[in-house]
Design a protein around this nucleic acid. Structure first.
Lengths: 280, 280
DNA sequence: ATTAATATAATTGTCTGACAAATAGACCGA
DNA sequence: TCGGTCTATTTGTCAGACAATTATATTAAT
């Protein structure tokens, strides 16, 4: 298996993509080789030197410890006092580094004995935060976010139809069973339906797609207060997920995708209805 | 247009999704309403109280300033000294908050006069970092990441076929023209091709999809050193993007998607070849 | 007059030491 | 056994100082 080689992700990784993200309209910037003073320009091109802060170096060191698995999830890092001794930096510098790692979702800190700096396993929540921040700044309309989910989750369903393992299929069955028994109990029903969706997403067996689909889903549910569902709507939803499961069982990816898309569309319709009502 | 309501993204936003992300296998945890001591359990459910740090509150305040547009991108925030005065916290606390915002891509700091704390417009780079971190920890194989791009970018192409504006189409034409003229000059050719891809992604007019597609692309190109292309390969690539543009012009989304998928697949094949060679 | 060196001032970066706050556990008493 | 109190550990916050960086003004040299 080909996995990552460069283990450390630096914040300043200058890539072709990020460099070109500021789209200049496609005009090639070749540039003259002669400077204004007439002297021939040297060929060597040195990028501007970024002098790293001590706190950044500390963050890198600790991050690599975590990423390389030198400390396991749930374990504690040495206390601030020890880290200060070992690293030879001041506590202020160390703490700035800790705040960086914390925002990356890699650690959490708690005061008191048995507290300290514990290593976390970052999950989609960080992606969700980044995404939400970007969408807020762009003032992205809700419809666009919905559309993205309507495009992504069917992809997952389609892959799941090809790849779902027997245990996963059994899980899907159970979740539908719980939904069926929960009709009338909104919170329980919604929770089970959510589990169903997550299982489908997992069954696609593509981490990137999983993280993306979950994060866009989280953005949506963070923005839409929990919405009530009538019993009729619950029964419709139940039928829908049953159809999705049947398509997955039949290994019919296209059908699973189509049904997932339509299921999501139905849910969005309900949601927009409620929002419209709430506005008046 | 329905846009975001809750303007501030807090790090502890407890959502249905994030709560359920730790999949428990679908078993509903209804729980008994009677505690072991026999007393009736109250209905009110209070979440554990998170005592926020001063530095977190400071970060929130400054973040909201930026997100609500009180300070424009490129502007400077007050100096640390002033902020310390205005906010009534110590410099250490303030600086921890600044490191958090910096990690979120919202600000950058530089020493010296005319330096200070400048507001940035965060871009996909943050998403890219989060994603790369997660994929490293999961030890996600390269093939999965490629697959994700092969699924996402065709989606963009498909939407672009429906939505590309005349200026965008003109841009695509120009970028292809540059590619044609650059055959033989690898770096120039690759840059133009990249611009083409980015324009297609933009032309999909879906921010979420754009951010996702760009970030997965960045993850890939960060991991694969720039790869040389023979002249033959460049000509094949040229044909491919011409085909994509024709499909977009014909507003044939399915065709545009299929051709994009095949184009990416071809590129991956070359890339894997080079990697295999480099290994020996 | 132009250029190069130097001083100056503003801002962030780092260090030190101290104290406050939170918290787990031990100890003690009713 | 149940509370309360004390104690020790760890993070959270503060205050003040100095170092490093850098734009600008000043001065000196050619």
């Amino acid at each position: 298996m080909t996995v990552f080689n460069n283990l450390i992700v630096t914040a300043v990784a200058a890539s072709l993509w990020s460099a070109a993200s500021t789209n200049n309209g496609g005009k090639a910037e070749v540039g003259s080789l002669i400077q204004s003073n007439g002297r021939a320009k040297s060929n060597v091109h040195l990028e501007t030197l970024r002098v790293p802060r001590a706190s950044e170096l500390v963050a890198e060191r600790l991050r690599s410890l975590i990423v390389m698995g030198k400390v396991a999830t749930g374990d504690s890092l040495p206390s601030e006092k020890e880290l200060v001794n070992q690293l030879g930096v001041s506590r202020a510098t160390l703490r700035e580094a800790l705040r960086m790692l914390e925002t990356e979702g890699l650690i959490a800190t708690r005061p008191g004995p048995k507290g300290g700096i514990v290593v976390l396993r970052p999950d989609a929540a960080n992606l969700t935060r980044s995404l939400a921040l970007l969408l807020q700044l762009e003032e992205t309309p809700f419809e666009i976010i919905f559309e993205a989910r309507r495009l992504l989750e069917p992809l997952c369903a389609s892959l799941a139809a090809e790849r779902a393992t027997p245990p996963e299929i059994e899980q899907l069955r159970q979740q539908i069973e719980i939904m069926r028994q929960s009709v009338g109990n909104v919170s329980s029903y919604v929770a089970a339906q959510l589990s169903f969706h997550l299982t489908v997403i997992n069954a696609a067996h593509n981490d990137v797609l999983r993280l993306y689909t979950i994060s866009v889903g989280e953005v949506i549910s963070n923005q839409t207060a929990s919405v009530g569902l009538t019993e009729t709507e619950q029964l419709i939803g139940l039928k829908a997920v049953e159809g999705i499961l049947r398509a997955i069982l039949g290994k019919n990816g296209k059908l699973a995708a189509r049904r997932t898309e339509s299921h999501l569309h139905g849910f969005e319709t309900i949601l927009l209805q409620r929002l419209a009502v709430a506005k008046n």
